[in-house]
C-alpha cells in the first residue's frame, strides 16, 4: 500500500532522553490519523519532525513516496498547526494570511477570502486584529494558515483544545469536509478522545515516546467489544478485589469507573467480591468499549490522555 507519510524508526533525543523512539507510522491518502497520548508522550515531537520543524536524531520518513532531498521538496505539501496558532496579534486576520501567501508566491487577493470562508471566518473578521480574535477564531485562522498552498497533508496539534462545544463541532466539520471534498490527509492529536473517535479513520497510540499501537476504526471495533463498568466508592480497592477472583484485565477510567474486559458474564461474582471486600458498590453494568477504554487498556489505565 502506498502511504503519503511513512516513518522509519524515527527517533528524537533530547540529551539522553528519547522524546520519540523508533516510530513507524503510516498515513494513507485522504485519511484522518488520530494521534493519542498523554501530555509529554511525544506527540508534538513527532508532529514537529514530520512537518520539517525539527530534525530527527535518527531514522527517516518518506513523504508522498519520496525520501532524502526529494522528500524535503515535498514538505511544501505539509500544512501545520503546532501547539497554538502562530499569529501576529497586531496584524489583521487578512494580513496574517497574506504574509504566508506572499512567502509561498500566491496572489492573496481572492485566495485569502476563499480560505477564510473555508474555515468559517466571516468577511467582517478579515480586518479585525488577530489579537482580538476569540480562541475559536484563532484556531480557525491557524487552520487557514496551514491550508495556504493547498497542502496534501495537514498536521494539527490539539486544534480543538480550549474550544467550546460548538467550536469543536465546527472544526470537526471543517476537517471532515477537507478530507471528503479535497482528499486532504490529516494528522491530528487531541485529548478529547470522544471527539477524535468521531473524526479519525486511523489511530496511533503514543506512550513514553513509543508508538505502541496503530489501528483503523474497523480494527478498533473488532478489538473493543462489550465490557463491564463498575461504579464503586474505591477504584483501586475494587481492582484488588477483582484480582482476588482472578480478573486482571481491568482498569480505572478518568471518571473513576472500573472497566473490566474479561469474564464479562460473571457480573454477579464481581459484585459479590466487591461487597465482600467491604467496598460500597453503586452500579455494575455492561457497556460497549470506546476509544478511550481501548486507549486506557493499552496504556495501563493512565487516565490523563
Amino acid at each position: 500500500m502506498a502511504y503519503i507519510l511513512e516513518t522509519m524508526a524515527l527517533t528524537k533525543m533530547y540529551g539522553q532522553k528519547a522524546a520519540a523512539k523508533d516510530i513507524n507510522m503510516h498515513i494513507e491518502e485522504g485519511k484522518i490519523y488520530g494521534l493519542i497520548g498523554r501530555n509529554g508522550a511525544g506527540k508534538t515531537t513527532i508532529m514537529r519532525m514530520i512537518s520539517g520543524l525539527s530534525t530527527p536524531t535518527s531514522g527517516s520518513y518518506s513523504l508522498f513516496g519520496e525520501t532524502g532531498l526529494k522528500m524535503k521538496r515535498m514538505l511544501k505539501n505539509v500544512g501545520v498547526l503546532i501547539e497554538h496558532p502562530g499569529l501576529f496579534p497586531k496584524l489583521s486576520g487578512y494580513e496574517n494570511l497574506k504574509i504566508k501567501c506572499l512567502g509561498l508566491g500566491i496572489k492573496p487577493k481572492g485566495y485569502v477570502e476563499e480560505l477564510m470562508k473555508t474555515v468559517g471566518l466571516k468577511p467582517e473578521d478579515a480586518d479585525k486584529k488577530a489579537g482580538s480574535y476569540s480562541l475559536g477564531m484563532r484556531q480557525r485562522l491557524g487552520i487557514a494558515l496551514a491550508l495556504i498552498g493547498e497542502p496534501k497533508l495537514l498536521v494539527l496539534d490539539e486544534p480543538i483544545n480550549g474550544l467550546d462545544p460548538q467550536g469543536i463541532v465546527e472544526v470537526r466539520r471543517i476537517l471532515a469536509r477537507l478530507r471528503d471534498e479535497r482528499g486532504i490527509s490529516v494528522m491530528i492529536s487531541s485529548h478529547i478522545l470522544d471527539e477524535l473517535s468521531k473524526l479519525a479513520d486511523v489511530y496511533g497510540i503514543i506512550s513514553e515516546g513509543c508508538l505502541i499501537d496503530e489501528f483503523t476504526t474497523d480494527e478498533l471495533e473488532s478489538r473493543t467489544g462489550l465490557c463491564v463498568m463498575i461504579r464503586s466508592g474505591e477504584g483501586q480497592k475494587t481492582l484488588d478485589a477483582l484480582k482476588g477472583i482472578g480478573i486482571t484485565k481491568a482498569a480505572i477510567d478518568k471518571e473513576g469507573l472500573v472497566r473490566v474486559e474479561e469474564r464479562l458474564e460473571e457480573t454477579a461474582a464481581m459484585a459479590e467480591a466487591i461487597i465482600r471486600a467491604g467496598i460500597p458498590l453503586h452500579e455494575i453494568y455492561h457497556r460497549n468499549a470506546t476509544l478511550e477504554d481501548y486507549y486506557l487498556s493499552k496504556t495501563g489505565g493512565n487516565v490523563n490522555a
Partner: peptide, 19 residues
C-alpha cells in the same frame, strides 16, 4: 524577533527546503 516570539515562523519554516 517578531516571527519567532509569536510563533509565526512555524507556519512557513517547515514548508521550505531549508529552514
Amino acid at each position: 524577533n517578531a516571527d519567532i516570539e509569536h510563533g509565526y515562523i512555524k507556519n512557513i519554516a517547515g514548508q521550505l527546503p531549508a529552514r
